[in-house]
């Protein structure tokens, strides 16, 4: 009996080591996007982006409420939600993918590592594989992550009426900035 208890205990410890995944999390990350045309520049920021990173597998997931994007002009914000991304139908933008080779990275002195990130970006109900490069550094217990990539409204089935076709860029630059803290289960 004693033996079996010990066995169970050892097994538990082993399984803990095997399966305890180290995760980092934030719900206050920043995503901004920028559309530049000769007619006008459009910029929006979302400060309530949530992200979770599994440092063992390099897997990462990002989620942002479309209504959380703030614009300079109130009317733009209303039209963004109502007419373009249709937030009532598709309330969130998500990304699910991986930081390639995360486990083999070494972190020292807050030096940023350049990494490749790839995965599925989902906006306006449309999924698209994307690949981009970013940086990750470790500051004390937190991971700081940044990435930049371009998206096209057309790829996500976001229709732009002819009247404003010159006001909205075909390539919109998206920047993401995260400070990930250890995730308490």
């Amino acid at each position: 009996m004693k033996k079996s208890i010990v066995t169970i205990f050892i097994l538990l410890v082993v399984s803990n080591v095997l399966f305890a995944q180290q995760k980092y999390f934030t719900r206050s990350g920043t995503i901004s996007f920028f559309s530049k045309t000769p007619v006008e520049n459009i910029e929006a920021v979302n400060h309530q982006t949530s992200c979770i990173l599994d440092t063992q597998t390099g897997e990462v997931a990002v989620s942002a409420q479309m209504k959380g994007f703030e614009f300079e002009k109130a009317l733009m914000q209303e039209h963004f939600n109502e007419n373009y991304v249709e937030s009532h139908k598709f309330p969130k933008a998500t990304f699910k993918g991986e930081v390639v080779g995360f486990s083999s990275l070494t972190f020292s002195d807050e030096t940023p590592n350049t990494v490749e990130v790839k995965g599925m970006l989902s906006i306006h109900g449309v999924d698209k594989q994307i690949k981009t490069s970013g940086t990750v550094s470790k500051v004390k217990d937190n991971y700081m992550a940044q990435a930049k990539f371009n998206v096209s409204p057309d790829d996500f089935d976001i229709k732009i009426p002819k009247a404003v076709i010159n006001n909205i860029s075909k390539e919109i630059e998206v920047s993401i900035n995260l400070q990930l803290e250890p995730y308490a289960q």
């Binding site: 803990n16 719900r27 992200c51 979770i52 989620s63 699910k96």
Partner: peptide, 18 residues
């Protein structure tokens, strides 16, 4: 035990958190 730890879908986890 392994089941309890293996939250294989991170997006679902995010969903729960938010």
């Amino acid at each position: 035990v392994s089941q309890a730890y293996a939250q294989d879908d991170l997006l679902n986890l995010l969903e729960q958190e938010t």
